[in-house]
Amino acid sequence: MNNNIINEALRSTAEPELDREISSLEYPEHSFSKEFERKATSLTKAGKAIRPGKRPAMLIAAVIAAALMTVTAGAVVYKTVIHRDSLAVYGVEDVPADTASFIGQGTENEHLRITNDAMLSDGNIAYFIFTLEAKDEMGKSFLNGTLSPEGTGPVIRWSEDPTDLDGSNRWHNMGGVNEDAGTGEKQVILGRLLLSRLESGSGPLYVKIEDMMDIGGEVCKGMKFSFSSLSRNIPIRKMQDSDGRILTVSPIGYFSDDPELAEMIYGKFMSNDKSFLSVEAAFKDGSSQDLSERNGNAVPHPDSKYTSGFFGANIDIEQLESIVVSGVKFR
């Protein structure tokens, strides 16, 4: 058959038919089960890195020095140097080890060692960089994804419940390994967290490493630690759109709890033909940076009152002239 003719006819018959069916769908109120969310997170989150943008990374030394958190080891506490190569993957530079007690700390067992290289919080969203290293063959297999028959690798999860360190449903995915930056023996993990998800709003936060599906496996035994606080340790700027709606911008991302804004941005997102939220930053020197498709550029859910996203790179907010999120411009 001549597929061009058939195709043309199908487009004018089957497509309107499908569109009518889609438009007549009812959208029932539904809260997805934790099991569904866990599986979905395992599918969608893989922590692929976004390379730093062209803008120079901001100096975070001073703000890190004001950090209020500490790391409490779940297993063995050790002190080590910061993995600057891990930080560089995300455009973070110049974080001195002696300015914050949590930097460079982590925990380890006989198979793995994890180091917290950075925790940046703007009070709305937090951004963690961990380095996970293999100490033996089992650890290497785990990092390579060959330990699990399903080919899954490490994932970092968080919880607020200290009594449920081995539980399941209270642990949420924070991020996965960075395939671009990792090697067979060392992987970088970027953790991202919307602080409004915390009941406390600012910690404490419990963190552990797991296989993506194999909860509590031998290789991850004891790989837990906690942050006593996630208080803000980087600067923020309040920016406004033409109607006076506020967007809080920091070097690592943006946030708004204005439900009207969330609905508007979601509507714009749904009406365009892109599968990601467009974000563009313009700077005072006339340069601009496309932050679309950056790591963790969140899409506002229509049922959510929040709009948030991570830049995947550090931007200099003092030099920021404007930022456009899904067509909405903030100055």
């Binding site: 599918l43 969608t44 989150k45 692929k48 399903e150 080919g151 899954t152 993506m212 939220l277 899409v299």
Partner: peptide
């Protein structure tokens, strides 16, 4: 479901998450 994860190219994962 996890096995399916391996079917998504690393470069597609963020795009898939948005999708």
């Amino acid at each position: 479901f996890t096995a399916c994860n391996t079917l998504i190219d690393a470069g597609d994962r963020e795009e898939f998450e948005a999708f």
